[in-house]
């Protein structure tokens, strides 16, 4: 015989408890423990497992918690985070949707859904969610940060600067906020502002090798090669596993005429990442300077093989082919480079 023990009124608004829809009265223990309590306990276990990065186990707990209480917004929210961590961004988005359906004022859920949407490749929707998160919690610096990032990627640099400014106003110790504001400033041509922000970022977090790289790039752009070299070297000292740091340093060493050292850096970059086309291009340039035009062409070939849209490598290969007495080949490469947007190539085609 089945007994319907519970009939919930629609108006029932017991935020953290609910009566269990119990079908078999014999299960007295379960009834006795209390439905809300059990859902909450499962949820807590899930949270603990999540922090231990035991994602499938955490997922299991949240699933159980939700099966007991299907209006438990926090369980949906955290299950969304589990799915996010497991890179199931659509699944995560669904869970955040559900959490927001239950509690439309959950700023964190808007923010997290924004993250999932951005990861799933929908920056515009993500931006909307970041804005909703900020509407519900104007101290949510991460929402500002990632909205700034979307603005940056959409080349809305001034908007990005505004967002990053909010980030550092809320969290003055958030190095990423300074770093990215520095980048946005650099894009608007504010070199000194960019430099100041990068310096602040490096001061707050001295492990940020990419900030030193960014400073190096700024100096290189300003043709201050010795300064650039110093910053790239610091970056490499902090992190000796990043191929692009070696490659970037190789480029200024090349500019400084230190060909042997440049060659070593490009070799190292290629060793760390044999698929890194820029390092082949750079090494080709060193070989060109060392009058090894055939070696240079071989490197440019590899760069183009890895990255068929690499206009600069075509351009440089053309210049090497000229030195190899292959004017037709050179012209062909320069034309291809111009096609791919390398402006310098245009004047050689004439």
């Amino acid at each position: 015989m089945k007994l319907n023990l519970i009939f919930l009124l629609p108006a029932l608004l017991l935020a953290s408890s609910a009566m269990l829809a119990q079908t078999a009265y014999t299960d007295t223990i379960r009834v006795g423990k209390g439905a809300a309590m059990e859902a909450e306990e499962l949820y807590n276990e899930g949270v603990a497992l999540f922090h231990e990065e035991e994602y499938s186990e955490a997922m299991q707990k949240f699933n159980e918690s939700i099966s007991i209480r299907d209006d438990f917004d926090l369980a949906f929210y955290n299950r969304g985070l589990v799915k996010y961590k497991m890179e199931d961004y659509d699944g995560a988005t669904e869970d955040f949707d559900k959490a927001l359906e239950i509690n439309p004022k959950n700023a964190n859920a808007y923010y997290s859904r924004g993250r999932a949407l951005q990861k799933a490749g929908d920056p515009e929707k993500a931006m909307t969610d970041y804005s909703l998160a900020i509407q519900n919690d104007d101290k949510l610096y991460l929402a500002y940060y990632y909205r700034g990032k979307v603005n940056f990627l959409l080349e809305e640099y001034q908007k990005a600067i505004d967002d990053f400014t909010n980030v550092v106003n809320i969290r003055a110790d958030y190095a990423y906020g300074y770093h990215d504001r520095g980048s946005a400033k650099a894009m608007t041509g504010d070199v000194s502002g960019a430099l100041a922000d990068y310096q602040q970022a490096a001061l707050l977090d001295p492990t940020m090798y990419f900030t030193y790289n960014a400073i190096g790039n700024l100096y290189k752009q300003q043709e201050k090669y010795e300064d650039a070299l110093e910053y790239y070297t610091t970056a490499v000292r902090i992190n000796d596993t990043k191929h692009y740091l070696y490659s970037n340093r190789g480029m200024v060493l090349l500019r400084l005429g230190k060909y042997d050292k440049a060659l070593k850096d490009f070799d190292k970059a290629i060793e760390l990442n044999p698929e890194y086309s820029a390092a082949y291009n750079g090494r080709g340039n060193v070989k060109y300077r060392l009058n090894d035009f055939e070696g240079a062409v071989a490197d440019y070939n590899k760069a183009i093989e890895l990255n068929p849209g690499f206009g600069e490598a075509y351009f440089n290969r053309g210049t090497s082919k000229e030195m190899l007495r292959d004017p037709d080949g050179a012209l062909k490469d320069w034309k291809k480079a111009a096609e791919l947007g390398v402006e310098d190539a245009l004047e050689y085609i004439e």
């Binding site: 894009m187 692009y244 970037n248 480029m251 291009n281």
Partner: peptide, 10 residues
């Protein structure tokens, strides 16, 4: 010769 360093702006 053209060489563009990798940017890690974000």
């Amino acid at each position: 010769l053209i060489n563009t360093p990798e940017q890690q702006l974000i």
